[in-house]
Design a protein around this nucleic acid. Structure first.
Lengths: 118, 118
DNA sequence: CCAATTGTTCAATAACTTTTGAACTAAGGA
DNA sequence: TCCTTAGTTCAAAAGTTATTGAACAATTGG
């Protein structure tokens, strides 16, 4: 069982921007970027919404070509399509992630910022 | 008579991305970038839609902080808020414009690409 | 086999966005 | 003043997106 993904060439700029223009999805992408290399499953985003709602947002990200989802058992391992995005739209993902990382208005997966240990 | 603009600090990343995630508005921004320094008025975008529709899209861009509109007589001179955007979201505008410039699927203001003179 | 875990699909609804045309305002020129 | 030019506003219609809950499917562990 594999899920449908656009090819790198099918990724559309307006579509990527529109999909990233949602606070929940931007928070997902920011979290994926902060854990790059570690594949995450859907339940790790439950802070951001209901299971159904996340399924919807994660499908949007996948269909736009922003993320890749690999089916492993009952889980879907989700990763950023950094290679494809960087080739199609150089610098875009990095600047979006950098801007999102500094955005205190965005919802957060951890629930709160990392605190300095006293 | 001045039109309402957000301050630089009020510009929101999800909002900017959402506003740029529309082919008509992306085409406007691409054209503004290609003519940077030259202030343009609304009628120069009529290739992209009706007067009313452009008024709507240009208001969206202005309200998101992507463009600035200065009232001069019966015209509004429209410019990119490059300074503010670059400060808030370094590299974002450049990568979006670069990607948009190479996007043949986007609508165009001139109607056609510049042809090589034979 | 049975139950739990993971996630999807469906239908309904609510909320927003885009597009349109007609009516409008405001400035500038004859 | 009257007409034109430039652009806005409004209300309606059409379309799209987000959110929800209930029902479903597939895998894994006991």
């Amino acid at each position: 069982m594999t899920l449908p993904h656009p090819t790198a060439e099918q990724i559309s700029l307006p579509n990527v921007l529109a999909v990233l223009g949602d606070p929940t999805r931007l928070a997902i992408v920011r979290y994926l970027a902060s854990k790059e290399g570690v594949p995450l499953n859907c339940s790790q985003f439950l802070d951001l919404g209901s299971k159904t709602n996340l399924s919807y947002h994660l499908a949007k990200l996948r269909e736009a070509g922003v993320t890749r989802a690999e089916v492993v058992g009952t889980s879907r391992l989700i990763t950023l399509r950094r290679d494809d995005l960087d080739r199609r739209f150089p610098g875009l993902l990095d600047s979006v992630i950098a801007a999102a990382t500094g955005d205190t208005a965005l919802p957060m997966v951890g629930g709160h910022e990392v605190e300095v240990h006293s």
